[in-house]
């Protein structure tokens, strides 16, 4: 039993990494731009299916990862310049308008995926083994997903705190008007943030399709999961998202083992409702954010 508990805990932590990978890009985009990108899940699916096609012509998913991330960087830039930049207004009005715009765009992306790949579930047979340490099996796909999620989170954190571009991004996040007054090119920063967030979705898609089969319409569920996670952590908070991801990973695995798999599917929402009641700003969010 002791060994089983350790196994479950490790699995939970690793699945936390998968959740973090799922939500990282969305968190960055919301943190900087206050845009909830409802096409985020569809970006992940598009990226995953691109990685699938690259795998079909002989590309290892780890090689496809930067290619797909770059493609999604471009798609993010296009979305920002072609769509979101044209939406006027500020505050809650702008948030609602961008929400509706990305909601509509999610249909465009998922239908493009559908036209190209059809609606069959696709997956990549990669990293299906496990590393066994002390009798505890660590699935390779989960290990790599978690590693990439943590590495990306750390890289984004360093970028935001240690580089001039990152500081510009944070300045825009705090006050767009203030940053513009100080000479920061706000349009460029928004472009950069949305593109980097989309590239993170691309990296997530290229890896997740090795773990979870995708079909063109899988994006909606992923967006809901990712949004729930970042809201739980405190919208835009990176450490909060990390904590939320680990909490959900452990909660899901433990619930599945002790209470049954049907309960596990809903645990993310039970935890979310509990946090909304007892800590409405999320685990590490600022008051009034959620």
């Amino acid at each position: 039993m002791y060994q089983t508990l350790i196994s479950l805990l490790v699995l939970g932590l690793l699945w936390g990494g998968v959740f973090l990978l799922l939500a990282g890009g969305l968190n960055l985009i919301y943190g900087v731009m206050k845009v909830v990108n409802l096409a985020h899940g569809d970006f992940i699916v598009l990226a995953g299916l691109m990685a699938f096609s690259l795998y079909e012509i002989g590309f290892n998913p780890l090689v496809s990862l930067p290619i797909v991330a770059l493609a999604l960087f471009a798609l993010g830039g296009f979305t920002q310049f072609g769509l979101l930049e044209h939406i006027k207004g500020s505050g809650p009005t702008a948030e609602l308008r961008t929400l509706l715009a990305t909601f509509g765009f999610s249909y465009v992306v998922s239908n493009i995926s559908f036209l190209i790949w059809g609606s069959q579930f696709q997956s990549i047979p990669f990293l299906q083994g496990a590393v066994v340490i002390g009798g505890i099996a660590l699935p390779e796909a989960l290990l790599v997903c978690s590693f990439v999620a943590f590495a990306l989170s750390a890289a984004v954190h360093l970028w935001l705190t240690r580089t001039k571009h990152g500081k510009s991004v944070r300045a825009v996040a705090q006050s767009s008007l203030g940053a513009e007054t100080c000479g920061v090119d706000v349009r460029k920063v928004r472009f950069l943030a949305f593109s980097v967030g989309s590239a993170m979705a691309g990296a997530a898609g290229a890896l997740l399709i090795c773990l979870i089969p995708f079909q063109a319409t899988s994006g909606g569920e992923m967006t809901v999961q990712a949004f729930t996670l970042i809201a739980l952590g405190g919208l835009g908070s990176y450490v909060g998202a990390f904590l939320a991801a680990e909490l959900l990973g452990i909660a899901e695995v433990m619930t599945q083992y002790f209470l049954g798999a049907n309960g596990a599917a809903g645990i993310i929402y039970v935890v979310f409702v509990a946090v909304l009641i007892f800590r409405p700003s999320g685990l590490l969010g600022k008051a009034g954010r959620v």
């Binding site: 089983t4 196994s7 479950l8 695995v253 433990m254 599945q256 083992y257 798999a261 049907n262 599917a265």
Partner: peptide, 17 residues
Amino acid sequence: HETYSPITTDFSALALK
């Protein structure tokens, strides 16, 4: 014998059980 929801993606604990 256990059932799982159609939205389940993580089957680790179920496989162990």
